[in-house]
Design a protein around this nucleic acid. Structure first.
Lengths: 226, 226
DNA sequence: TTTAAATGTTACAAAATTGTTACAATTTAA
DNA sequence: TTAAATTGTAACAATTTTGTAACATTTAAA
């Protein structure tokens, strides 16, 4: 993984966490804790992506966005907006102003990383190296291959997306609704039982004999990786 | 492959990566991390090609370019400029100042190698051996010949470009859109199904009997070499 | 234990995707 | 110019994927 990421965010704890982890992933990271300075430094730094907090002490995230979209050089800079919970309506306003994606605080680093990759993949696929690992499971997105203990597994498209999704936050339990939202294409309607069948298919593919179960059923809650 | 390549670039990590890999390819490589020294050493080294970073601590890439073009001995030295993203406009400026090609950071080594070969091929075809190999497949660009296990294969023009493209990033899955963008001439419009037919033609030519399939179909994603 | 709810499993038809062939239009070579 | 090669697309075949229904099994509560 390579590429440069700039962060404008006023909570130092968030900056620290995100910066540190992104650097561990191989990104070059720089940051600012306010909007006006951020804009200036941003232009010098020439990032491949911007993480932008919604609420800032001076300029609002939206202001910064508009500012960036006017600038010829930065016009196509991908932006991920960080919003606090309860700003759902504002999401729509924000989308109009040219933000590429959103993330609601609090978030896990893996979620953020996934969004960053997704956005970068669209704008500049070369940057994303893309390799997820969990336990003895390896998923290579570029090659679209999955291995369990170095034995290749063949997955159908939905099974692949499903596993990809679980790997973003392994161990976490997802409800059927959450799975639907994230794994199925938007505005498609399938019954929630459909997920059970796909889980079954994924299990069948992933659980080679002699290997322990990777997908846990949490009764009345959903599924998770373990 | 033979020939000498000089690098002027201030990020040591890039120098290291590029130098090492170019040497593995058979080039003789030397480098400098700033413009003024670079210019001096360059004249002693007498390279066949220069990799030049756009942004340098002292002289800009453009300055160096102009300097070189004034020098009788270096007048025809091929130059590949390395630019960070978001300098699109500058590309044009740069082209006027006599740069032969561009590469936007970050880039994969294979992309760089392809550009280097393309430029050298124009300026001094003898230097470029130009030879891509993957599994038991050999593609010789100079002679426009392809071999599978030392048996020559005849490919049509599109089949050749298609295979060439897959060989730049073997194993990686490309969507039909990506293939269209990279293999077909710009601003041409063909249906995505057309690719399937060309893949079929390529397969027919490349898969000699008793040989395993080289092109993998990834349902709902695209194709890749394996 | 009995019962109801939740989940597992299987089968199957419809839908989507890809493979294959043929053919007309265009380009290239002879 | 004529013949051969190349190209894009349509049409149909083969294959894979998908969603759901139906029935089986498990779990938790009464």
């Amino acid at each position: 993984m390579s590429g440069k990421i700039f962060i404008i965010e006023d909570e130092p704890s968030i900056i620290q966490l995100v910066q540190h982890n992104l650097e561990k992933e191989g990104f070059i990271v720089s940051s600012s804790i306010n909007g006006n300075n951020g804009l200036k430094e941003l232009k010098k730094f020439e990032p491949n992506l911007l993480l932008l907090d919604w609420m800032l002490p001076d300029l609002s995230g939206i202001e910064i966005c508009k500012n960036i979209r006017k600038d010829m050089k930065l016009k196509s800079l991908p932006i991920i907006m960080l919003t606090a919970k309860g700003e759902e309506e504002d999401k729509i306003k924000g989308l109009d102003s040219g933000v590429d994606d959103y993330l609601t605080k609090p978030f896990s680093f893996n979620e953020l990383l996934a969004r960053i990759k997704a956005v970068l993949r669209r704008s500049d696929p070369k940057i994303v190296s893309d390799y997820i690992e969990f336990d003895d499971l390896k998923l290579n997105r570029n090659e679209r291959r999955v291995f369990r203990s170095d034995i290749e597994i063949t997955l159908g498209p939905t099974e692949f997306r499903l596993l990809e999704f679980f790997l973003l936050n392994p161990k976490r339990v997802y409800s059927r609704d959450q799975i639907l939202e994230n794994v199925w294409p938007n505005n498609i309607n399938v019954e929630s039982r459909t997920i059970d069948v796909h889980i079954r298919r994924l299990r069948k593919s992933v659980n080679l004999k002699n290997k322990k179960e990777l997908i846990r059923t949490v009764r009345s809650a959903g599924y998770s990786l373990i």
